[in-house]
Design a binder for these strands. Structure first.
Lengths: 164, 164
DNA sequence: CTCATTTAGTTAGTATACTAATTATTTGTG
DNA sequence: CACAAATAATTAGTATACTAACTAAATGAG
């Protein structure tokens, strides 16, 4: 599809128009990091209209997913699950608290730690959230197996980049 | 907590320990969007120390890649290549101009458009940038074929999400 | 027990990114 | 030609995200 015939004939090479793609290591379309950044922004953009009725941004949705798996959790625990710094989560959690979806209370056994816990409204929101993955899937219109293959590749990439 | 066992085989199900993963469509680790967001942030984080000597952030590096392919380009043109809004590029380009890597001049033939053009310093930076992909590759320590497979999957995902 | 060290969050400062609104030009239509 | 519509950037406003610096609390070695 985006394939160019591999020029095996040296004579033909000189006749080609300048094209950054062929073997330029700096060609934009060859960079994994560009594919990653662009796909991430684009896919997350798909979530915007779907999450908007729930009153959530995509990062907020991820925090809710973490809390629906377990609640209460500490800031650090959520950060480890989502691979986000506490400094990023701090204001984000405050907004979710303002939205009435969770509470933030110091842990009585360790006053340094903050217990982040779902409210009834936060738990109730899960029902609506259950429709989200299906809606995104429909919009993407991709093969399930293909999507899972991509996700598994990304998980591998995440592991490799964290090891580095 | 937030678990409701799917009662298909009530007897066997009751014996399972609570585990969000198996078939919960909202399980964090199943979400393509989470793998995407986390991998994107983590891989871009790998670039930080590598790009720091060049004085570039990762988005700035992507803009430079676009300009090394062709210069001058308009803001809109760069935005289409990088899949970024002009509103995002506007301040970013101003910073690159302050860094002396490019110039911003209105197009005489169309005063609405802005010609973004590399300076000599901007062109010269390419030499150092040529070392970047190799350094990242070394840090990742992943198979080339594997990486290209992931990149191609991401490109497919990007296409699908833009079509939606 | 005491104080240096570690740990958990928050705050400050910078840079993305998005949508919506605005400004300046250019284009197209009657 | 006049002017509404379209186009290109910028600005305003909100929300992430990161590092570094800071505060408060818990831990641990002597």
């Amino acid at each position: 599809m985006s394939e160019k015939p591999q020029p095996q004939d040296p004579v033909a090479l000189d006749l080609r128009l300048p094209d950054p793609q062929p073997q330029d290591p700096l060609a934009l379309d060859r960079q994994v990091c560009f594919a990653l950044a662009a796909a991430s922004r684009s896919v997350i953009g798909l979530y915007r209209p779907v999450l908007e009725p729930l009153g959530l941004t995509h990062p907020q949705y991820l925090v809710m997913l973490a809390l629906w798996e377990r609640s209460p959790r500490t800031v650090r625990d959520i950060g480890q699950a989502l691979r986000l710094e506490p400094a990023t989560l701090s204001p984000l959690l405050r907004r979710l608290e303002s939205a009435g979806l969770l509470t933030r209370k110091r842990n009585p056994d360790d006053e340094r730690a903050l217990n982040v816990e779902l409210t009834a409204a936060g738990r109730a929101l899960r029902q609506q959230a259950e429709q989200v993955p299906g809606q995104i899937f429909d919009r993407l219109g991709m093969n399930v197996a293909e999507l899972e293959r991509i996700r598994d590749g990304l998980t591998m990439l995440l592991t490799a980049s964290q090891r580095a």
